[in-house]
Structures are given as C-alpha cells and as structure tokens.
C-alpha cells in the first residue's frame, strides 16, 4: 500500500511540474516522474503476482519512454541552439513572428523547384 501511495505522489508531483514549470528541462523531469510513477505501480503489482511478464513489459515500456525522452532532449538542444531559449512560453511567442520569416521563406524557395 505504501508503494501505491508513493507512486500516486510521484504522479501528482509530475503533473504539478508540468502545469507550472516553464523551462523545457524541468518539463522533461516532470515527464520522467510521471513515467516512473506508472512503472513503479507496474513493478509493484507484478511482484505481487509472482509472474515474470510484468517485468518484461516494464523493460519494454521503459525503452519507449526513453526514446521519447531522447526526442524531447533533442528538441531542447534545437530550441536553445536555434532560438536561444528553453522557455516554452517564449517559444510560443516566437511563433507569431515566424510565419513570414520561417516557413514562408523556405517555401518560396522550394516553390521554384516544384513548378
């Protein structure tokens, strides 16, 4: 039972972090906390059942989680290199100015190739 409470707490902390933190890295940590909470629950129930399938599942689930984490990390690197910020709100603001400079420009270049 203690473990269930622990995993619930982890979940709550993770969601709180997602709701309040603005830095990408902190968002990432919150995401990891949620994933850990879920995994912990799984291990818990699997061990009580005494079957190996639970652990097998967990290893695979971890691997997908890690992949997604990797992608988010990559995004973080892109964001900080290209736009010099890791703040998600600032990224959202960048969005407004971008339609003219960003995609528009590269598109007009491609337009010539296509037609």
């Amino acid at each position: 039972m203690d473990y269930v409470i622990l995993s619930m707490t982890l979940l709550a902390i993770g969601i709180y972090g997602l709701l309040t933190k603005r830095h990408l890295l902190k968002v990432l940590i919150s995401v990891e906390l949620i994933a850990t909470a879920a995994s912990m629950n799984f291990v818990l129930l699997a061990s009580s059942l005494n079957k190996a399938l639970g652990e097998a599942f967990l290893i695979l689930a971890f691997s997908t989680d890690t992949c997604v984490t990797g992608i988010i990390l990559a995004l973080l690197v892109i964001a900080s290199k290209k736009y010099g910020t890791c703040d998600i709100r600032k990224l959202a603001k960048l969005e407004q100015h971008e339609t003219i400079e960003g995609e528009g420009k590269s598109d007009s270049k491609i337009k010539e190739d296509i037609v």
């Binding site: 969601i15 709701l19 309040t20 968002v27 709100r89 959202a92 969005e95 407004q96």
Partner: peptide
C-alpha cells in the same frame, strides 16, 4: 497577453486534459 497568440501553451493542454 496570450490572448493574441494563436495556439495555446502546453500547460493549458495538460489542464484541459485533466
């Protein structure tokens, strides 16, 4: 100020999902 942005921020999404 978000009023003017055309897409919501991540936190809004999570809150809506909750």
């Amino acid at each position: 100020k978000l009023r003017k942005t055309y897409s919501g921020s991540l936190q809004h999404f999570i809150a809506a999902a909750l």
